[in-house]
């Protein structure tokens, strides 16, 4: 997923140079000009055929939720979170789950190298049923961009328990590049599609750390501890 590649540009410039030299040598001969034209036409038809034969990944277009739907989902999610009905939460929201055995009385939660205050919020919840266990869950509702799930490309934090310290380490900066092909404008005119959509998708994420009841928590001030 490297951003840009010089190879095709160099190739195309070379192709253009070759073509301009061919055009120069066409010598305005009607026959050669016709051959050149049909050569170009067959190149285009060939690329159309190749395009349809190429195995394309992620061409599936999913359903993209509207902003209202997204807000609704969020409401439902946080309601379940607040009432402690974590089991009721749609399992597709769980991107990753870390489970650690823990039998101490006090847990300190540290953020590794976190500098970005706006990154994923973290909440600590005391759960009655939990015994000798700490569970961290990365929830995300809808990692859909333009209706396509990009969950598998996302970098997640690494979470580890060392003695009585739960350490959350932010992943290295990760830039994801995607390309999207749109129809030419006379077609968009009728399909109502825009070259650049107003919304490319909404997502919200949160890390929930479940700890047994009675464990005293000592956490970084950015971490919200539910009483």
């Amino acid at each position: 997923m490297s951003s840009f590649n010089l190879v095709p540009i160099i190739i195309l410039i070379a192709v253009l140079l070759i073509i301009s030299s061919i055009v120069g040598r066409l010598n305005n001969s009607g026959k050669k000009v016709r051959w050149f034209f049909f050569g170009y036409l067959s190149l285009l038809v060939l690329s159309a055929i190749v395009y349809f034969l190429l195995p394309m990944e992620e061409t599936q277009v999913g359903q993209m939720s509207t902003h209202e739907e997204f807000l609704e989902e969020m409401d439902e999610f946080y309601q379940k979170l607040n009432t402690g009905e974590l089991d009721e939460i749609d399992p597709s929201y769980v991107l990753e789950r870390w489970e650690f055995a823990f039998d101490g009385d006090a847990l300190s939660i540290e953020l590794g190298n976190q500098e970005d205050l706006n990154a994923v919020p973290i909440e600590v919840v005391a759960v009655e049923e939990l015994q000798q266990e700490v569970i961290a869950t990365y929830y995300q509702n809808s990692s859909h961009l333009l209706g396509i799930s990009i969950a598998e490309y996302l970098s997640l934090p690494s979470i580890d328990l060392k003695h009585t310290t739960l350490e959350i380490i932010e992943p290295a900066p990760n830039e994801l590049y995607f390309s999207s092909f749109k129809s030419t404008f006379p077609f968009r005119q009728y399909s109502g599609e825009k070259l650049m959509p107003d919304d490319i998708g909404y997502s919200s994420e949160i890390i929930i750390i479940q700890v047994p009841e009675g464990v005293s928590i000592e956490a970084d001030e950015q971490i919200y501890v539910r009483e």
């Binding site: 961009l145 996302l154 970098s155 932010e170 900066p173 990760n174 830039e175 994801l176 129809s183 994420e205």
Partner: peptide
Amino acid sequence: IGYNGVSIQFYS
């Protein structure tokens, strides 16, 4: 998205 920067380049 989360810890990730995401860019979509549109072609036509």
